[in-house]
Amino acid sequence: MSEQEVEAIGWDAIEDQMKGLYGQQDPKHYAAMLPYSLGGNDPLNGISAYAAEQPYPHWHFVTFGFTELFEKESEDPEYSGYGFELTFRLARSAGEQEPPAWAINLLQNMARYVFSSGNIFASGHHLDANGPICLGADTLLTALAFTDDPELPAVDTPNGRVEFLQMVGITADELEAMMSWNTNAFLESSQEVLPLYITDLARDSLLRLPVIQEAVRQGIERDGSQTGILYVDELDYEPGTSRLFSAAPAVLTIGARQAPTIAKLLRGRLLKGKPLTLNSKQRQVMLELKPVNGTVVNEDFVRIGLTEEVVLELEEKLQPKEGELRLSAAKELKVQIRKTYIKDQEGNVVETIG
């Protein structure tokens, strides 16, 4: 064993976990040509793809680079690096000898996001890709969910704990269901039809199955929603004015794209006694259930208390359509819905909502 191999304690720990599943299989490995630390474009040191056969043929990817692969560098003794490596299971066609390049690029893109923003993924998270997860593909999978890899338990290494977080391709309506309920609960309810959470670009939405629809309905009714913070494209708040002979209501402005999601979250959050915070680059607005309507405003944060009557009215009226909503149960507040413009990576508008 070389000196370099002895030092690669984090790398070896990941490979040992994979050997527990695949024995001595020699995976397809894709190393970064130029390390990120030296100005390269790929943050991950490498990505391995194993050919799995059960429950049906698929590629099982694992990353090397979110954690500390060699010497311990961070000051956190509990976790290695960011504390996780990503895995991804992708359906493999008959005779397919090499994993598709887009899957490698997708994993590197996830790393670019984490390394540039400092935002990490965790089990239960989700991410809207705003388009096919495989660019140019004819697929309904336009978002990603993250959950514990069902076959790879976390491992403690000399550099700290490493969790294996599986990325799962999901449809837009599945994303909405997860936001309205619970990501991991949704995936667990789908295990029989989505074994090991294998991503298949050709599959239809799981919500076409009555059994999944019913599981989501019951789950929302029982548990409410786990989504306490919703990031929105457009958000603003203008306080109302009160004069002797005229008064203007306060105005809450949101984008058309998120209007239906907010409507569903109002029931799953506020009516379960839990607040919902809307975040944009400019504003932060918290909605919460209160016995009487009321608003607290400061420079960076708006806190809006709504009665159950207002919540139910908003749930019914919020639609992805540009316009102004007047509320019979809260005449001091109106909601302005503005069009949302979806743009591609070059900044071109590809879809208008509202």
Rank of each mutant, 00 (worst) to 15 (best):
Q4I: 14
E5A: 13
V6P: 00
G10N: 04
D12F: 08
L21T: 11
H29K: 12
Y30T: 08
P35K: 07
S37E: 15
N45T: 11
A49N: 07
P55K: 12
F61M: 09
D76H: 08
G81N: 01
G81M: 03
Y82E: 07
L86A: 10
R89G: 12
R92Q: 14
S93D: 10
A94S: 14
P100C: 07
A111S: 11
V114T: 15
S117R: 09
H126Q: 13
A137M: 06
A143H: 02
D149E: 01
E151S: 10
A154Y: 04
V162T: 10
L165I: 12
V168M: 00
I170S: 02
D173R: 03
L175K: 11
N184I: 12
E188V: 12
S190M: 11
Q191V: 14
P195L: 06
T199V: 04
L207A: 05
G219S: 03
I220L: 06
D223V: 02
Y231L: 09
E238W: 02
P239S: 12
L244A: 14
S246M: 07
A248G: 05
P249V: 03
Q258L: 00
Q258Y: 05
A259N: 02
K264L: 14
L265V: 10
P275D: 09
T277N: 06
T277A: 03
N279D: 07
S280V: 07
S280A: 12
V285C: 00
V285S: 01
E299V: 09
F301A: 06
V302M: 02
V302F: 01
I304N: 00
L306W: 05
V311F: 01
E313I: 10
L318N: 02
E324W: 14
K334R: 15
Q336R: 13
Q345T: 11
E346R: 13
